[in-house]
Design a protein around this nucleic acid. Structure first.
Length: 387
DNA sequence: TTGTGACCTGG
DNA sequence: CAGGTCACA
């Protein structure tokens, strides 16, 4: 659903014969006569190109450079980013208080500046990404539209049954209110309620929750997020298969790291992975093209050497790379320092040497435990490479 | 509850 | 095929 370029063209906007003017495709004339009203949102708070075409909605159309047109409640509206970054809107219909509806839709109550400060404090990489992706915001869509959208997209086996029902019928059936009522619930309840809908699984449920139900810490775990998590958040899980349980673990990890707006952080990390947006990033931030490793290679990289007992070895982050077919390079973060272990002729982990940053000695790192763990890997006690 | 296989669809 | 959901053990 979300996050997959929409191949479809948008459904026609609700009947709203706009300006009596001729509907010229080129909007030069239209634009001139159009009234643009400023929202007090800067590019720091809202970047249209980093918010609308990034997978959270497919109902907005890019109608001009830096301009997007879509529907908010009863209003057909265009949003435009000026050269100076300020965002303006223009109504295509004479309707009442569109501005507040628009600000609501844009989640304007949430300050990106404040939110990102928290993220950046706990994640250096985020801080750097944020420099280049400022204004990437999570919208507050209408829950019903959000669901229908995801539904349109997946349209899985249940399509036949449900396509018999028109959108209007669904709305009238009270589903709209029911959906909206979920805003008051806890995330877990929201997910379980949404999952009752046909075609809605954990991922779509999290999308709806995050993008329309004020569940700012909902994390839709799809393969992209899973890759991000394996790379930066839970390296010890690299190579595992993405099961439902792991999905939950990934979501937990996001919340643990980024807090109650974790979904907003996820959105940024996600778009940083989009090929279309990577162009914005300096090369050192571009995620190396993951030439999807084979399962076996993956598992070889996925050695988990976490110490079992609590203490120093807990919460340590292990990252292993299979640099050559002969050796493994292991990077262990320990507080602010890093220890490296290089093993030769993997999987015969007979010899290993350490290379220690500054004064952290091997003993300080718990050499005995490292050896124990490596030995257990060698003797096949660990679960990786179950072949 | 968790893990598996069948089953859909758009790129 | 790759991504998701669902039914089932």
């Amino acid at each position: 659903m979300k996050r997959k370029r929409s191949p479809k063209s948008l459904p026609p906007p609700p009947s709203t014969p706009p300006t009596p003017q001729t509907q010229t495709r080129h909007s030069t004339n239209v634009s001139k006569s159009r009234v643009w009203i400023p929202l007090n949102l800067t590019r720091q708070e809202l970047s249209l190109p980093l918010t609308f075409p990034t997978g959270q909605t497919f109902r907005w159309k890019n109608t001009a450079p830096s301009q997007y047109t879509g529907v908010v409640g009863p209003h057909l509206v265009s949003l435009k980013q000026l050269q100076n970054g300020d965002v303006c809107y223009s109504l295509h219909t004479q309707s009442g208080d569109a501005k507040s509806a628009l600000l609501d839709f844009l989640n304007a109550d949430v300050s990106l500046a404040d939110t990102w400060k928290v993220f950046s404090a706990s994640d250096e990489r985020f801080a750097e990404l944020a420099q280049h992706l400022s204004g990437a915001r999570v919208l507050r869509q209408d829950p019903f539209e959000c669901h229908v959208e995801g539904f349109d997209f997946h349209a899985f086996p249940t399509l036949q049954q449900l396509s018999l029902v028109s959108e209007q019928q669904l709305r009238n059936a009270g589903g709209e209110e029911w959906l909206r009522s979920l805003r008051k619930l806890e995330l877990q309840d929201v997910i379980s309620e949404l999952s009752k809908l046909p075609g809605v699984g954990p991922k779509v449920a999290a999308c709806i929750a995050l993008y329309s139900l004020d569940q700012h810490h909902a994390i839709p775990v799809d393969v992209h997020v899973w890759r991000i998590a394996q790379k930066y958040l839970l390296p010890e899980l690299a190579g595992s298969k993405l099961t439902l349980k792991l999905c939950n673990r990934v979501a937990e990890a996001f919340v643990t790291k980024y807090g109650k707006y974790a979904g907003w952080a996820q959105a940024v990390l996600f778009i940083a992975e989009l090929p279309s947006q990577k162009a914005l990033l300096p090369s050192h931030l571009k995620t190396t093209k993951q030439q999807t490793p084979t399962k076996r290679e993956n598992r070889e990289e996925a050695v988990t050497l976490m110490g079992g007992e609590s203490g120093d070895w807990r919460n340590k982050c292990w990252r292993l790379r299979h640099d050559t077919q002969k050796s493994i390079f292991c990077e262990i973060e320990h507080g602010s320092s890093t220890m490296h272990i290089v093993t030769s002729s993997f999987p015969n982990l007979q010899s290993w040497l350490t290379e220690v940053d500054n004064e952290i000695s091997v003993e300080d790192m718990g050499q005995a435990e490292v050896e124990t763990k490596i030995e257990s890997v060698r003797s096949g006690k660990n679960s990786w490479m179950t072949e």
